[in-house]
Amino acid sequence: MAQFNPPRLPDEAVAGLADQLPEVAERCVAAITAEVPGYAGALSGEPGELIEEAVQQALAGFLRLAGGPQGSDPSTPMRPALDGAYALGQGEARSGRSMDALLAAYRVGARVSWRELSTAAVDVGIDAATIARFAELVFAYIDALSAASVAGHSDELATEGRVRERRRERLAGELLAGREEEVLVTLAERAEWPPPLSLTAVLLPADAAASVMSTLGANCLRAADDWSDADLAVLLVPDLHGLARRRLLKTLRHTSAVVGPTRPWTHVTSSWQRAVKAHELGLATGQTPLDTEDHLADLVLQSDRDALQDLRIRALAPLTDLPPATADRLGETLRSWLLHQGRRDAVAADLHVHAQTVRYRMTQIRELFGDRLDDPSKVLDILIALQPKTVDNP
């Protein structure tokens, strides 16, 4: 560590300073506790004793550095202290204290250490020039220790973040698999994920998932890629009720996302299954999000495509022999007639034709369908058969 060029202190001076280390460490801990909010009341009892011991070890490393032969490699006495500082940073991260609190503690510790050590240095007869270089060494040493602690703190948070992310990804997979509630609760606790009242599954393009998640909060879950097509991602969004659902759809604008129904959080697999079905049926088109709650009839009607096609063939058999354009025109008129309960003017307005045109077409339709239009069960079949087709629908 070439940045260090420590002064060579006499052995008797080092011994005199070493005698002060327990008291210096105690005063450092007291000052940190009093001045740094994150440590208020946290360093009493055993934690305080451990920190005092760590401070003493760091200061002892400093004295070994200052008392070593002139020009010697400073890495030898510093390595244990740096390793200890790194471990301290890791421990502080696990304790939930921020890096700001840790750095503030170092600043307070540096001030108190220099005040106490400089006083002791004068007492043991160290000259002014040596004390000036001694000051440089103290603060350079503290900087090196704080940098090591910051590295330990950052690495620990990164490791914890990756572990938590993997655990939440596993939780998302088990939710989609429909696992038992007891298993899900245990996995949620391990993933440090507070269960919401409900979850909603969202399928969206994989390249949009990260930006969408950033707006949805830390408790939004993302399933592993093997739960969807290669170009899709699955998000599980907590508590999408009322305005929250509308805000989500606004966030998803300009994407072909599919939003499933909201379900109790342990039953979100049904939300995911419905979103997948809507995607497979091609209900989402273009760059507009699809809310499955607005397409329940489409989902019901198209859940069995073969059955729907058979129903169309049977219910619309009277139109089979007509030219396709004529059959489409009469089918459109009959659907509007049934939906508007036979109100001719409403049908005419819906189709943008004259009321007499509607009357003429309905005369043709009655001749073709006969008494089928008087049978409620057959009318239901006809209305279902006349449901507009989607792009992928047969």
Rank of each mutant, 00 (worst) to 15 (best):
A110Y: 01
L351D: 02
E169Q: 15
G282N: 04
S118R: 14
C220F: 00
Y39L: 13
R312Q: 12
T255D: 05
W227P: 04
D328T: 04
L301N: 04
E52G: 10
Q287H: 08
A275Y: 03
L339T: 09
L82N: 05
A2V: 12
A218W: 02
M362H: 04
H267I: 03
L137H: 07
A30Q: 05
Q309N: 13
F62R: 08
R247K: 14
E332G: 15
R190Y: 05
Q302Y: 06
A315E: 02
P388L: 02
L65W: 04
R263D: 07
A40N: 09
A218F: 00
R361G: 07
L203D: 04
L187G: 10
P264L: 01
A206P: 02
L102A: 03
R133G: 14
R8D: 10
A172N: 06
R133V: 11
E49Q: 14
L290H: 04
M213F: 02
R164P: 08
V24H: 01
V112K: 07
D328S: 11
G331P: 07
D392A: 15
T119I: 13
W193Y: 10
L252N: 08
M78W: 08
D73C: 09
R111W: 02
A15M: 07
R274C: 07
D207V: 06
A275I: 06
S113Y: 05
L59F: 05
A34E: 11
T215Y: 07
L50G: 07
G68D: 11
V202D: 03
V150D: 09
D345W: 05
I313S: 14
L290P: 04
T363F: 09
T266P: 03
R111P: 06
V122E: 11
L199H: 07
I365D: 00
R111D: 13
L175T: 01
D306V: 14
